[in-house]
Design a protein around this nucleic acid. Structure first.
Lengths: 168, 168
DNA sequence: ATCATTGCAAAAGATTTGCAAGGTC
DNA sequence: GACCTTGCAAATCTTTTGCAATGAT
């Protein structure tokens, strides 16, 4: 919360909002009301979301007058990804976002029944990834791993339902 | 090429076309000219493709009269995936397909410069995947791993370009 | 002959863009 | 005041769908 944008603060742990401000400043872009509202809204809860759910969320919680429009939401999400604050990946044909800034790297288990994303971290995976890349003279920028299947809860639910049916 | 659809042939190594015929038969669907042309065309070369490149390909190599339309291409690609002949994943917002039937499982290195996909296989990855899933009581159906970065060729090209520039 | 499949045109869903009006530095 | 942003409407891109005509068994 101290003074911003001085060189010495670069190493400091800035809030997402401050980090975004800094990024925008460096690109000679403006920290508008809309962008401010969006960063804060996006970082208020740690949760995966897509453009539509964010829009719905805004529609439900922000008065029309200050509510960013759909194009602005898309444009700002792009900037947040560019700024390194959000990570973006694709799921079922639409873009999904999650916090990146200040959040440890991880991958996902994706339940195709309830569509939930479960996070996990694996150092072994990173090693494996780097080793494979090295073997191909490939310079790694990142990766995307999604393990698809059915989560414990959905499996249980199915089993319960089946047993129930068997009893009839 | 011997008699098809008899129970004894299920274990036999069928050609993609034969496999598709069998699948269609089992679902009481018809093996039309369009479907025939598409399976054979798709399996003529081992290469990643999307609906549009396939359509372009067809436009360039098949006379209008016998050329499957866009909706038919989409519908048939869906059936080929369903039949287990093709694998589908998303890249840059559109669906990409590759051979699955008779082809060993693998993952990809994706070069963001030239957009090429390089295949690799890792048993360690499968073990890691299964272990992680088990730890979460997750029933695995499959996974998607794409390592993003810059391939050897593009790195070289860049280096050459840079050296060339440095010489000016 | 019956019923699946095709092509066309149009729809749908996600995301992007041109441009005039409005906001920020 | 200069210039970036926004919102609106419309465009784009990819994929899907309704339906009448056509084709496979």
């Amino acid at each position: 919360m101290s003074k911003k944008f001085s060189l010495g603060d670069v190493e400091t742990a800035l809030s997402p909002r401050e980090r975004f401000e800094e990024y925008l400043h460096s690109k000679k872009m403006r920290f508008t009301q809309e962008r401010k509202l969006l960063v804060e809204h996006v970082f208020a809860r740690h949760e995966h979301f897509d453009a539509n759910s964010l829009l719905d969320d805004l529609t439900a919680n922000v008065e029309r007058k200050h509510r960013p429009s759909r194009p602005t939401v898309y444009r700002t999400l792009g900037e947040l990804v560019e700024a390194g604050l959000l990570r973006k990946f694709e799921l079922d044909g639409r873009a999904v976002f999650e916090h990146d800034y200040g959040y440890p790297p991880h991958d996902h288990l994706y339940c195709t029944k309830c569509e939930s994303l479960i996070e996990f971290h694996s150092d072994d995976l990173l090693e494996l990834r780097n080793r494979v890349a090295q073997e191909h003279g490939f310079r790694v920028a990142g990766h995307l791993l999604i393990i698809q299947g059915v989560c414990a809860e959905c499996s249980q639910a199915k089993r319960r339902a089946k047993r129930k049916q068997d009893l009839l």
